[in-house]
């Protein structure tokens, strides 16, 4: 009996969480006329929350994929911005996180506190000074203008330090006694054990950079270099159908990465139990 109540409660909670997303996916299959009827807020009646499209159409996807090629170009721009950033951040952060978690050096904890402070800095603080710095380095109209600051964000370090901390000191001590250099320890012992953390970092970093909006607008001078996230943020109240379809397509790469690695996330959690 208790089990059934628990199951129902679980389904309820999951439904609340998934409902807007499912609604969005359903909307992306609706025709534009149904969407404008649904979103017409002026007529003062209660809106029907239709989850089932009247006519199951792929019209919106067709528009996005084939009729308007600029969306594909922007999609690739997003990929070009995000991939190097994610890879760079994973590499840089894992090195630094190892040092912060396991190695001792002067000022370690105070430096880490500064890292945390830099983590929560609001974006507008660094926007204009970064512009000046990038201008002096001649990197303004270049994809590197977003890739470089993203690679060195302190988010990865804080996340990975957490995971590395759970690795017992004893295994590292044993390796040191056997004469391994720190680099060897890093590659052979640490990295396999924090696979879950790495995947989580990849996923979150990917999402963050996939959704970046303010920086490209300011650092890029050409329209053709804008990523897809800017079009998504520019809601001009006209083409909701396309926005739904774009949203679904936008969501897919992040989901792919998640499904690629989610077993690793969940596995490592239970592994540590030993």
């Amino acid at each position: 009996m208790k089990k059934i109540i628990k199951c129902i409660f679980l389904l309820l909670v999951t439904a609340i969480f998934l409902f807007p997303v499912v609604y969005m996916i359903a909307c992306s299959f609706m025709s534009s006329s149904q969407i404008s009827k649904m979103l017409d807020f002026a007529n003062g009646e209660y809106k029907d929350l239709n989850m089932i499209p009247e006519m199951f159409t792929l019209e919106q996807f067709y528009q996005v994929l084939f009729r308007r090629p600029e969306y594909l170009l922007k999609f690739w721009n997003s990929v070009i911005i995000t991939l190097p950033t994610v890879i760079g951040q994973v590499v840089v952060s894992s090195f630094a996180a190892f040092a912060f978690a396991k190695l001792k050096f002067p000022f370690r904890d105070k430096l880490f506190f500064i890292y945390i402070v830099l983590l929560i800095l609001p974006l507008q603080v660094t926007l204009v000074p970064n512009y000046i710095i990038l201008d002096n380095m001649n990197l303004l109209n270049n994809f590197l203008a977003i890739i470089l600051p993203g690679t060195f964000s302190t988010f990865g370090i804080c996340l990975l330090r957490q995971s590395i901390k759970y690795i017992p000191d004893s295994s590292i001590e044993a390796a040191r006694i056997d004469g391994a250099s720190y680099f060897r320890i890093f590659t052979r012992i640490i990295i396999p054990q924090i696979k879950g953390g790495l995947i989580t970092l990849t996923l979150l970093c990917f999402i963050d950079n996939w959704n970046v909006v303010e920086q490209p607008l300011i650092y890029f001078e050409e329209n053709s270099m804008y990523p897809l996230s800017i079009t998504m943020a520019d809601i001009s109240n006209s083409d909701y159908g396309i926005i739904f379809a774009c949203g679904v397509m936008f969501m897919i790469p992040a989901l792919v990465i998640y499904f690629y690695g989610h077993k690793d996330i969940n596995l490592s959690i239970y592994d540590i139990e030993k």
């Binding site: 990929v79 070009i80 911005i81 991939l83 190097p84 890879i87 270049n142 994809f143 590197l144 890739i147």
Partner: peptide, 9 residues
């Protein structure tokens, strides 16, 4: 893809 990204920079 990452390589193409770096070269595009």
């Amino acid at each position: 893809l990452a390589l193409t990204g770096f070269s595009a920079c």
